[in-house]
Design a protein around this nucleic acid. Structure first.
Lengths: 215, 215
DNA sequence: TATAATACTGAATGAATGTTCAGTATTATA
DNA sequence: TATAATACTGAACATTCATTCAGTATTATA
């Protein structure tokens, strides 16, 4: 029996010191890319490992060799996505002077990113699914905490800047996240323009809701 | 072979003109009650028809005789729940004079109802699931529209009362629903007291966010 | 009383699908 | 070159579960 592995050869001129590491990275990336597209298109549950297998052109076992299981693969994608989002935001953030502007900038980015990345839909499906192993629950908790912390820091900057005045920063961080979370679900049924407008209106309300009492 | 059907006999003194209708109502109620409890406890997908069968003590076929399918059963529960919520709210609403107070009253009711009725969790799981038949999608759309309409009417009353001042009522209705939707997911991880406080804070923000500019 | 309509039964169906594992190929190491 | 470690294969496994349907019992109708 003949096995054809290693479809993509690494640069032949270079010494093959870490051919395996390269191959692993490449395969993981191929699996991740195909899986991301499929999860985004069909949702979490509706995407079978078999679908990914077909798209990648590798075996089912190979996926399990590189990722712990289906949940692990999805979690990997989410965490990778968050890392990218953070790093992109770090660049974008500098474009805005006030925290107020940052908030508008953030939701604009969020609105457009979320519409182009229907992965959020799969993520919501995944998050709201009842049956989850404890370690999965934990990784989700870490992610949620990350979102809240992000909001808290943003709000704190605004307070330090004296742009708005709130005592319960943590509470407001949760409220902001709730707003964005709910918005992401509603805006799924909208066109880009309408979604963007709704996000902006939400920030209008939120900002006036935490504005300093007297101007 | 012996079949034991009709475990609960109707009142024997009465004429059995509509014995069948009574039996049907009774059975539907028994199935609905068991299913509601199970969906709330285990979630939508994790609740198997077999579970409901065991809880009710009837056959699987009987469930399909009274409800179109699993989705139909769940949808029935949701719609029934909404009807009850509406009718309860109609009574509660009268306790509050201003729309502002109504809003606080509503979220209080919402917060407590949602915590005692973990059916919301199953509902979120169901709503966010990708694979849905067109007719199911339609019934969900109707429900969502109902929530938005409810908010719009509430806000409109506040405007008529001159409690707040907004031009884009529909937009704000969506934002209010988004807020409550996101809140319901976050508050699931909280104790009653904390959840209630968060809901109240959210209303604080929302109300100030739509308050008239000059006081 | 005979016939039709309704209210059930529950075993069988059938399809989907995450995961494993014994075995094979390739690359690194000594 | 021999041995170990790594990177795969893919068929088989194991389980879950919604749904159907031929048949039975009960009640309504004529």
């Amino acid at each position: 029996m003949i096995f054809i592995v290693q479809i993509c050869q690494p640069e032949s001129g270079e010494a093959s010191v870490n051919k395996k590491k390269q191959q692993t990275e490449l395969t993981k990336k191929k699996i991740a890319d195909a899986a991301r597209a499929l999860f985004a298109q069909k949702g979490y549950k509706a995407t079978a490992i078999e679908d990914i297998v077909k798209a990648v052109g590798c075996s089912a076992g190979n996926i399990y060799y590189h990722f712990k299981n289906k949940e692990g693969l999805f979690l990997y994608l989410l965490e990778e996505w968050n890392r990218e989002w953070d790093s992109n935001w770090l660049v974008k953030e500098k474009l805005y002077l006030t925290t107020t502007d940052k908030l508008y900038g953030m939701v604009e980015y969020l609105a457009l990113d979320q519409l182009s990345h229907p992965l959020t839909r799969a993520a919501d499906e995944f998050f709201n699914n009842a049956e989850k192993a404890p370690d999965v629950e934990e990784r989700i908790n870490v992610m949620v905490k990350g979102y809240i912390d992000f909001n808290r820091e943003l709000l704190q900057k605004g307070i330090d800047n004296q742009e708005f005045e709130i005592s319960n920063v943590s509470g407001h961080a949760i409220i902001l996240d709730s707003l964005l979370l709910g918005l992401s679900q509603h805006c799924r049924r909208m066109e880009r323009v309408e979604a963007l407008a709704t996000y902006r209106l939400a920030v209008d309300v939120f900002l006036q809701g935490i504005a300093k009492p007297i101007r």
